[in-house]
């Protein structure tokens, strides 16, 4: 899973670079607009190490933001699973807020909180929270009738059991959504760093952008891609192990 993720990223990345070089060749653009391979390699040699640590810095925000989102999404999703008025109210709010581009709120957050770690974390969490919430709400509010019937009719149903049944029956769906949300969290963190931050790969890309240095941006994109591929691959492997462990060993 992990290697497949990296392999897929490398394919896409090098296809993109090849496309750029083809455009450069066809239109006859200078190295200033689209750098050639030697320049990209030279820039990579100079900046790769620094960018790697910048991506790790962004990854910290991503992971923390994702964890906060997952906890929040499950808490609200479980509370909103019932067809009571509270459940309907939570669902209505979630669907409506989800329809709004949260990233547009980023400037307000920076005006109120300034640069730094907290605004980045907040934006990363917010961007991956709503898609996660909708998936969790969808799973938690869909009864698994053929399993739940017995517990309901015999009066043995408890909310913890209901949540466990629904989570277990939709384990692969939840795992996919959680690992997919890593990309969203990282996108949120990078966007936050673009707008106003003093650290992270988004901040470095912003500087490269001001310098119109596409080679630096390409190296930064490579670092982001590799790191997020490894992180997603690890998440997928972990979720696969958890699914197997829950399905095979627990409860005996």
């Amino acid at each position: 899973m992990l290697f497949r993720r990296i392999y897929q990223f490398l394919l896409v990345y090098f296809a993109g670079i090849s496309g750029l070089l083809l455009v450069k060749l066809l239109v006859g653009l200078s190295d200033y607009v689209i750098p050639g391979i030697p320049l990209i390699f030279a820039t990579a040699g100079e900046t790769a190490k620094g960018y790697f640590f910048d991506v790790l810095n962004t990854l910290q925000v991503t992971v923390l933001g994702q964890v906060i989102s997952i906890i929040l999404a499950f808490t609200v999703g479980i509370a909103g699973r019932k067809s009571s008025w509270i459940g309907s109210f939570i669902k209505m709010i979630a669907y409506n807020i989800q329809a709004y581009p949260i990233v547009a709120l980023a400037p307000i957050i920076f005006i109120l909180l300034g640069d730094g770690f907290i605004p980045r974390l907040l934006i990363a969490s917010m961007i991956c929270y709503f898609p996660l919430l909708l998936s969790v709400l969808g799973v938690m509010s869909s009864p698994v009738k053929d399993i739940e019937h017995f517990y309901i009719i015999t009066g043995k149903m408890r909310w913890q059991l209901e949540v466990k049944i629904r989570a277990f029956e939709n384990l692969s769906k939840l795992a996919t959504v959680i690992s997919g949300s890593a990309t969203l969290a990282m996108a949120g963190a990078i966007v936050a760093e673009f707008i106003a931050a003093d650290a992270g790969i988004g901040y470095s890309i912003r500087i490269a952008l001001y310098q119109s240095d596409l080679a630096k941006i390409l190296v930064a994109l490579f670092m982001i891609g590799i790191v997020i591929s490894i992180y997603q691959g690890l998440l997928e492997s972990a979720s696969e192990r958890i699914q197997k462990a829950w399905a095979i060993s627990s409860g005996n």
Binding site: K164, S250, N252
Partner: peptide, 23 residues
């Protein structure tokens, strides 16, 4: 009054015996 039907399932996280013990 209890109603059982033939398409019901037991949760998959434990064995049939463990499930019976619990209920």
């Amino acid at each position: 009054v209890l109603y059982s039907y033939n398409l019901e399932r037991l949760p998959g996280w434990s064995s049939a015996g463990a499930h019976l013990d619990k209920v």
